[in-house]
Design a protein around this nucleic acid. Structure first.
Length: 720
DNA sequence: AGAGTGGGCCTTTTT
DNA sequence: GGCCCACTCT
């Protein structure tokens, strides 16, 4: 702590009783966290608590807020940490550097970007823009197709992103993961070059660039590195198990002067290797930082011992892992339930009914979550929830800022800051008749040579008369928009412009809703004074809490039904998005081989271990009740028999209670009126054997549809 | 070159 | 079920 003790701020009376509010391990982390520190924090062990108290402790001991850097992976986590620190300190920690890696990198690049070829006014490409740009690069290369399909822009982007983040040559990645594409290797490498060059020319960065360009800058500019590493006296990193090489190197450089680097993480919750998270960062931390202290937070304050028993048992099957069993302090509860369902539909019905029962028992809807491996797994459930009028909030899927009309507005705004932003030009111009991709690209190049948007508006581009008409419209929209000053004003001018409204009403049936969205967007914009920070916030957050495609918000009146308010909603979420969160009751659905673990994980090195960590993350979200469900069959025309997830099989038989569903009407067995007629008799049955191949499906006459297998209906897990 | 239409494809996870 | 591409016509 040395120099900071002298600063005088510590003369204020301490009002936080660290000793009383933290357990021994947490207290150690908070008070002895100087130098390089690794905090292995199990799920629900008060990790956020330890970090926020540490920040509070530093501040109370006179460390200036702007000399503390707190890095997280999600905006939500960053916000939560700051809010909790604020609550502790009873004042907002003004000046604290807290944010995601990407947002902090952006902030630094806005300050020092003039030392890079990108300048300080670069645009940020979101995932769609980046993919579109990649498409253009592919198109331009005019690849000769030789039998094998050429990778889509999306695939190309993924390969290149992985190459950057894992710091592996593209060729090696192609050889390893897409050997068939080696036929195109020369083209692919050229396209990669083109993509990079194009971004530089357009003064735009994709998400990866934010980290990479900052890292390059710090490596090449000794003065700046020295300056920043001196500035940041304390660096704290959350979810360190999910950092990649680039991120680890960034914090390494930024902490190179003071060496006060405290990283928190749980190797058992590393679930982002697909974007090159390097679990070695956390496993090798003690070797990499000489004299590093290691702390372990193993007391779990969240879940019942029954839930932890399941999570601990399954994760044990991963060999490369710090050994640790979470210990529960919460009192004993019910055994987790294991529920095989005849098909997706019955699974959805079961989940829905249980949710209704939980609510009757006094649980709030928002204290219940349904988690799944992949976004589309929730489809059947969403039908059922809609049918029963259960309001829910879907995490993931279409983000507000990804909606077409919102992106239109953003594209026009972006041009006012960076006239070289080709993707913004292409998007804006293509709204007008006369502009297709080809013409818009050419126009973007033309305008990209100019100094700023003003020059573009007063230029005389070499367009044909028809194209010129379209350009006049765009120019008019831009001019109308720029009559405003703040982001909100500009947005309202944009939404009110004749040019854009003509486009909207010509193109879409629901103009009114789209205009309302734009108004909502303007309201959101009111908290920003300047266009730059506003655009950055949008690019780096993707959402601002507005629920998209939310059928429930219409019917759920605050005073009707057992739901106490409109924000009391069931949570549907992918497991990835659920990390760090907790609920009273959690359903994990689609626990069948091929769904979870995901099909593609079988062939990937370390894939199964990662899926298992995902399972671990999912199970440890639950406080009191945990349900595992899976469909035994899937498909309608061609019925497919599913195996339960291998993770289900890894659960000790006495650690769960198996539920047998009585009315097992696969939807294909129901009458042709669809919508389940529960009174109608049905005869089809499904049997399932856990050990080897299934199974038997009987039709209405008791005839076998698939291969014979003696066995009872939905065999008990005890038969394993 | 752009716009409109029909068929094939694919569906992990995210800052 | 949605998106993307290729094809055709203007």
């Amino acid at each position: 702590m040395k120099e900071f003790f002298l600063s005088g701020a510590s003369s204020q009376p301490l009002h936080i009783d660290y000793r009383a509010e933290l357990n021994d391990e947490q207290f150690q982390v908070v008070t002895e966290g100087d130098g390089p520190c690794l905090v292995l924090a199990g799920a629900g062990s008060g990790k956020t608590r330890a970090v926020t108290y540490r920040v509070a402790w530093l501040l109370e001991h006179g460390v200036p807020a702007d000399r503390i850097l707190l890095l997280t992976f999600t905006n939500k986590a960053a916000k939560e940490m700051v809010v909790r620190a604020e609550t502790l300190l009873k004042s907002y920690p003004q000046g604290l550097w807290a944010g995601t890696f990407h947002s902090v990198a952006n902030r630094l690049l806005r300050m020092y970007g003039d030392r890079t070829p990108f300048g300080r006014n670069f645009s940020i490409l979101d995932e769609d823009d980046a993919t579109d740009l990649m498409k253009l690069c592919i198109k331009e290369r005019k690849v000769k197709i030789t039998g094998e399909r050429f990778p889509s822009a999306n695939v190309m982007k993924n390969i290149m992103s992985y190459s950057v983040n894992a710091r592996l040559p593209i060729t090696e990645i192609i050889e390893d993961r897409h050997p068939a594409l080696m036929a195109y290797i020369a083209d692919i490498l050229e396209i990669a070059k083109k993509y990079a060059a194009e971004k530089e020319r357009q003064q735009t960065m994709d998400f990866d660039d934010l980290l990479v360009k900052l890292l390059e800058l710090l490596k090449n500019d000794n003065d700046l590195r020295e300056q920043l590493a001196t500035k940041f006296a304390y660096i704290l990193v959350d979810e360190f198990q999910d950092t990649n090489i680039i991120q680890a190197e960034l914090v390494d450089l930024l902490s190179s002067v003071h060496r006060n680097l405290l990283v928190v993480g749980d190797d058992a919750q590393s679930i982002y290797s697909f974007r090159a998270a390097e679990i070695k960062n956390i496993l090798d931390f003690p070797e990499h930082y000489e004299g590093a202290k290691t702390f372990r937070l193993l007391t779990n304050y969240r879940s019942t011992p029954e839930i932890l028993a399941v999570a601990n048992a399954v994760i044990k099957n991963n060999k490369e892992q710090f050994k640790k069993d979470l210990e529960a302090v919460v009192k004993s509860g019910d055994l987790p339930l294991l529920v095989p369902a005849a098909d997706e539909r019955q699974e959805a019905q079961y989940v829905t009914e249980q949710i209704l029962e939980l609510i009757e028992g006094g649980t709030k809807l928002k204290q219940i979550a349904v988690l799944f491996r992949a976004a589309f797994h929730s489809q059947a459930l969403e039908f059922e929830l809609m049918k029963r009028n259960i309001p829910y909030e879907y995490r993931g899927g279409m983000k507000f800022f990804e909606r077409a009309h919102i992106k239109d507005a953003i594209a026009h705004l972006r041009l006012t800051r960076n006239v070289k932003d080709g993707m913004a030009w292409i998007r804006a111009l293509q709204l007008q008749p006369g502009f297709g991709l080809a013409t818009a690209s050419k126009a973007a190049s033309f305008f990209g040579e100019l100094s700023d948007i003003g020059a573009a508006l007063s230029s005389t581009p070499p367009f044909s008369p028809k194209v010129m008409m379209g350009w006049k419209k765009t120019a008019d929209i831009l001019a109308t928009m720029m009559a405003g000053y703040s982001p909100a004003e500009m947005l309202r001018n944009f939404a009110g412009s004749d040019g854009y409204n003509e486009y909207l009403s010509a193109e879409y049936p629901n103009v009114r809703e789209r205009r309302e969205d734009l108004e909502q967007f303007s309201v959101f914009a009111e908290q920003y004074q300047e266009i730059g920070p506003f655009l950055d916030a949008i690019a780096l957050t993707g959402d601002f809490g507005v629920r998209v495609d939310d059928p429930a918000s219409v019917g759920a009146d605050a005073t009707v039904g057992p739901y106490d308010s409109t924000d009391d909603k069931l949570i549907l979420s992918t497991i990835h998005q659920a990390k760090g969160l907790e609920w009273d009751s959690v359903f994990i659905i689609h626990l069948a081989e091929g769904s979870f673990p995901h099909q593609r994980s079988y062939g990937e090195e370390g894939g199964m271990a990662e899926e298992r960590r995902l399972f671990y993350v999912a199970a440890t979200r639950a406080r009191r009740r945990l349900y595992f469900t899976y469909p035994v069959t899937s498909g309608y025309e061609h019925i497919e028999i599913r195996q339960p997830s291998q993770f289900v099989k890894e659960i000790p038989r006495d650690a769960v209670e198996e539920v047998r569903l009585r009315t097992s009407t696969p939807s294909w067995a129901q009458n042709s009126y669809g919508r389940g007629d529960y009174n109608k008799p049905y005869n089809r049955q499904v049997t399932q054997d856990f050990d080897d191949e299934p199974t038997i499906v009987l039709d209405n006459h008791g005839e076998r549809i698939s291969k014979p297998m003696p066995g009872s209906f939905l065999r008990n897990i005890d038969d394993l």
